[in-house]
């Protein structure tokens, strides 16, 4: 699924430049298609920091791709040994991380531009992420965080369910999101 992440100086200098002011958004968007997911991760983080709404569709598209990639298709082993397939290790290295970064990038845009930039389809996806036990909990956490920022009336029951998640971080963020209000409208 992924090539192994590289932690060499050249890779570092590439991603470090993502935050240079002179680096165009197009370069960051192109990096979303890199075969090194660590570059994707950095690109998402840099796009989030730019809060550029034009990047939104590309980030959403990346989420769609992630949903079909099989990011959780790895053996449930506590400690992979040296004989484990490198591809299995790589899945474990990545798992939730690109999805989480994508959701945080969208959150930054929402914080800057307001909830109106979000389409119905993404909202449904967030509702799914927030309570899906098939997702790693950081995806549930990030989805709840984003739903808290969106404050959409239809999210109340989802957040109520997430607030009862057995995983503490998810439940805590969902509870906080549920408690927030906007313009007199409440979730429930």
């Amino acid at each position: 699924m992924y090539t192994q992440t590289r932690n060499d100086l050249a890779t570092f200098l590439t991603v470090d430049a993502f935050w240079d002011r002179g680096t165009p958004v197009s370069e960051l968007l192109a990096a979303l298609h890199a075969d090194n997911w660590q570059v994707q991760l950095a690109s998402l983080a840099a796009l989030g920091d730019r809060r550029d709404v034009e990047a939104l569709s590309a980030v959403e598209a990346l989420l769609e791709t992630q949903d079909t990639l099989g990011v959780y298709d790895c053996p449930d082993e506590w400690d992979l040994n040296s004989t484990s397939e490198s591809s299995e290790k790589e899945i474990w290295r990545c798992r939730y991380r690109v999805k989480q970064a994508a959701l945080i990038a969208i959150l930054r845009c929402v914080e800057q531009h307001g909830p109106g930039i979000i389409e119905e389809a993404l909202l449904e996806k967030l509702h799914h992420y927030a309570i899906s036990q098939e997702e790693d909990y950081p995806v549930r956490v990030a989805a709840c965080e984003l739903l808290g920022a969106l404050k959409h009336p239809t999210s109340g029951p989802v957040l109520a369910a997430a607030s009862k998640d057995g995983e503490w971080c998810t439940a805590t963020v969902a509870t906080r999101a549920l408690a927030s209000k906007k313009e007199g409208k409440e979730f429930l």
Partner: peptide, 14 residues
Amino acid sequence: LLIQFRDHHTGMLN
């Protein structure tokens, strides 16, 4: 830095 960003910083954001 890359290990920190890849593994630990994403953990903090959870």
